[in-house]
Write a protein that binds this DNA or RNA. Sequence first.
DNA 1: TTGATGTTTGGTTTTTGTTCGGTTATAATA
DNA 2: TATTATAACCGAACAAAAACCAAACATCAA
Lengths: 203, 203
Amino acid sequence: MKNLTKKQKKILDYLANYEQDNGYMPSYQEITKEMGLKSKATIWEHLKNLKDKGYLDFVKGAARAIKLEEKFRLFAKAVQVPLVGLIAAGEPIEAIEDKEMMDVPIGFVNGKRVEDCFALKVRGDSMIEDGILDGDYVMVEKNYYPNNGDVVVALLGNEYATLKRYYREKKRIRLQPANSTMKPIYAVNPAIQGVVRAVLRKF
Amino acid sequence: MKNLTKKQKKILDYLANYEQDNGYMPSYQEITKEMGLKSKATIWEHLKNLKDKGYLDFVKGAARAIKLEEKFRLFAKAVQVPLVGLIAAGEPIEAIEDKEMMDVPIGFVNGKRVEDCFALKVRGDSMIEDGILDGDYVMVEKNYYPNNGDVVVALLGNEYATLKRYYREKKRIRLQPANSTMKPIYAVNPAIQGVVRAVLRKF
DNA sequence: TTGATGTTTGGTTTTTGTTCGGTTATAATA
DNA sequence: TATTATAACCGAACAAAAACCAAACATCAA
């Protein structure tokens, strides 16, 4: 990828910001004004150069149709994690067919490897006393050895995924639901799928 | 996915907002009025274009049958809303000094005006039975008249902000905590700061 | 059958992108 | 210093897309 000039960089930054703020792209007129110029033709040339250098693309004739290369979109505010299915107390994970993605604020992923994160939709009331309700989404980090008290996704009998609190006891692991009507499950070496890092609920 | 124009984005936002508020879609007439236009044909064209771009679908002939595509949310994965302070059961909002911002996934803001959204950090257990715990963040939409059952931020005595469920009764409003150890508060005309739209919790 | 809704037709107006033929400004080079 | 290449710029004209309209028509449910 070729180097940018000062002006080109300035325009690219403006485009990325504008897109983030508005959800659509500025017109050439708007860019012209923003850059303190007088002719759209100037902007057209700049965009042409940026296109030739591979930083963006635009289709002929279409209004507000500049497409930034993915790398230059400053959507650092959130990351997308795969929404892999539903999790239930005592029920298997149901695979969601067209690999849906879910947005999670970057602060919630925070240092974890994005590739190690996925989201699950919660079904059931096994964690109700910890404020994790039916219909909530949980963001899960895999490849992580849980600490005592962490909420984990545990695979029981190699088939049933459930959400439980994790407690290491003398010779076994206690998987404790946060629901006083349910009993804890004990296992020597349960398959832990991951640790819950965030809960998201939409009304 | 092709880029949106200004108007297309505006209509898409309106549709998403309307759907969430009402549970069904507006008629073409309503959209026309909302956009300050005079002819339904204009709206029909906009919807056609949005359909062609893959942001929604509608079946021929059916009334109020616009179906939004999930994908259109991918445009801006998150927005920043101001984190205005702490909210407590029976305590005043504490202003956070350097206006911190918080990221909220765009799907959670979804059609609401970003300027009308803010986040609060919850203190206290007044909503514990609804799964809103001490330390959670709630995303609040202001300038919105609450429906029965909505979780609202209410300002009591012009000074104390609290999180309660909102119920309209014959001649008064009942503000109901989701905590069986607390009693409801009754008021004729409570100052409602906003409606809770999402809960975010970080472990 | 009436009213609310969505669809089509055939236009007009406004906004936007594109092209053209040039002019500076700057920096490297002969 | 004069020369040359390149980036940046301009105004005007043009073409096309987007946005708009009124009016008629179609469809469906009450």
